[in-house]
Design a protein around this nucleic acid. Sequence first.
DNA 1: TGCCAGGCCGGGT
DNA 2: ACCCGGCATGGC
Length: 217
Amino acid sequence: MRKKKDTEILKYYKTLLKAFGPQGWWPGETDFEVIIGAILTQNTAWSNVEKAIRNLKEKGVLNPKGLHALDTGELALLIRPAGYFNVKAKRLKHFTNHLFDNHKGDLGRLFNKSAEGLREELLNINGIGPETADSIILYAAGKPEFVVDAYTKRIFSRHGLLPEDAGYEDVKAVFTESLPPDTRTFNEYHALIVKTGKDFCKTKAPLCLSCPLKEYI
DNA sequence: TGCCAGGCCGGGT
DNA sequence: ACCCGGCATGGC
């Protein structure tokens, strides 16, 4: 039974990779930018996050010191286009405060531990939940943690590979048990899922006509 | 015009 | 251990 699902999970991956090719995620130039983007994109369209990122870059504060020195109110103004700007400003400050209080503002020091230990640490920062933590670990730290998001649940439950009400860890287990614990594979698979979700599963009645996975429904 | 986007927290059951 | 309201802009 698990054997069959393993095959399906791998089959879907190969199909998407063949259809779309490598996505080369995360869309960001530095590890720090990846982290900031991961927090800003919480329940938010990426196009809006880009505007906020652009504002931070223009201000020259898209780096640990710059953001750490910034007042929370000013920060909120800069990230306004990303929505939830008051909460997110606090969350970004929570992260940079943690980074300077515990690691001298150095991402290398923060990342210098096992993926498991890093996950535990990130989850203890207010504003970083399971998906954001896993995104940071996979796309900034480069360690193999599979990232689950709304598209993952929507697509794979629709295909009958997940129960509708599956929780984060349950969904994650389905993938990690079916794939080699390989950073590259986790990286591409999640990126491909997001692309598929954006292009074909945006609505309740998705356009499946040209989706590479339509044959599997 | 209304609905929704790559979640998470805090308070209540 | 869940369940829910709140948070907010911009694109279609």
